[in-house]
Amino acid sequence: MASLLFLPHTARTPTPRAATPRPRAAGTVTCGPRDNRGPLQRGRSLSTEAIHAVQSLKRLTAADRSPSSARGAASASLGRLLRADLLAAMAELQRQGHWSLALAALHVARAEPWYRPDPELYATFVSSSPSSDPAAGPAVDALVEAFLDEKETRGVGGRVAAPSEGPWEGEDVYKLTRLARALVAKGRARAAWRVYEAAVRRGGLEVDEYMYRVMARGMKRLGLEAEAAEVEADFAEWEARVSPPARHVLDEMRARGEGSETATAAASSL
């Protein structure tokens, strides 16, 4: 029997210890947002100039956000921005809930040569207006009046309309419907009716069935029964003018279908 003295000696491998986390020092700053703004959404980016302009506007109006003060500060902060930066700054102010400052930015945009009275732009302002602020409703009504005045003077595309064409000729019906729908959603029935009356009834803009339905249902829901009846009458007139050609096409398709079924039945009986 071999002695135990001659057995090979094996060295013990040390067991690795789990790394103990270092204690965090008091006052350590972790990664996180530096203010209350949410992350930028996909498809929207602010340039450095636009970010600085928004921050400057908020600093200048921190103590006084009256309309006159906000307009002066917006002119000083945003007046040198390019079109894309000014529109992005305007949208960012609405997203952060600074609706009055966004209105001041819109006042700056109105003085630019590229500006045009776009109903989609005004629809975003109506949709972002604070419902809890009692002053927001009259401000929305004034915003609509300014939009209609601009349409009368500038026409479509920011140019002065020729005497032979109306200011609503060539307007995007989808954008106008979006503005009317936003006004109805905010309960501004009179403002929505002003837009419909100016564009459709007096302006002669050819709209689609969806616009009529939005206005008829909205006027009924908001208590304007007489205006709702007028919209329904306009819709009936439009339907009588537009539907017969479509109905004629459907009748032809139905006749062709019935003829093919009769031919198939006759061939199968042989």
Rank of each mutant, 00 (worst) to 15 (best):
23 P>N: 03
23 P>G: 02
25 A>P: 07
26 A>H: 13
28 T>C: 06
29 V>K: 08
29 V>W: 05
30 T>H: 12
33 P>Q: 01
34 R>G: 10
35 D>I: 06
35 D>L: 04
37 R>C: 07
39 P>G: 08
40 L>A: 05
41 Q>E: 12
42 R>Y: 12
42 R>N: 10
43 G>N: 04
44 R>Y: 13
45 S>C: 07
45 S>I: 06
46 L>G: 06
47 S>P: 08
48 T>H: 15
51 I>C: 12
52 H>Q: 11
52 H>D: 10
54 V>F: 02
55 Q>C: 11
59 R>S: 06
59 R>L: 09
60 L>N: 10
61 T>C: 04
65 R>P: 12
67 P>L: 02
68 S>H: 15
68 S>G: 15
69 S>H: 15
71 R>A: 09
76 A>E: 11
76 A>C: 08
76 A>I: 05
81 L>R: 07
84 A>W: 15
85 D>Q: 06
86 L>R: 03
89 A>C: 05
90 M>F: 13
90 M>T: 12
91 A>I: 12
92 E>Y: 09
93 L>I: 02
98 H>D: 14
99 W>G: 07
99 W>T: 03
100 S>N: 15
100 S>H: 15
101 L>A: 02
102 A>Y: 06
102 A>C: 11
103 L>Y: 10
104 A>P: 04
105 A>K: 00
107 H>G: 11
107 H>P: 06
108 V>C: 01
109 A>N: 06
110 R>W: 08
111 A>N: 08
111 A>R: 13
113 P>T: 00
113 P>A: 00
113 P>F: 00
119 P>I: 02
120 E>R: 14
120 E>G: 13
120 E>Y: 15
121 L>S: 08
122 Y>V: 04
122 Y>T: 03
122 Y>L: 04
124 T>R: 15
125 F>T: 01
127 S>Y: 11
127 S>K: 14
127 S>F: 09
128 S>A: 11
129 S>V: 01
130 P>N: 05
132 S>V: 07
133 D>T: 09
135 A>P: 14
136 A>D: 02
138 P>E: 02
138 P>T: 03
138 P>A: 03
140 V>T: 00
141 D>A: 07
143 L>N: 01
143 L>H: 01
143 L>K: 00
145 E>N: 14
146 A>F: 12
147 F>T: 09
149 D>I: 14
152 E>N: 13
154 R>P: 13
155 G>L: 01
157 G>M: 04
158 G>K: 00
159 R>F: 07
164 S>M: 06
164 S>Y: 08
165 E>V: 14
165 E>T: 14
166 G>D: 00
166 G>M: 00
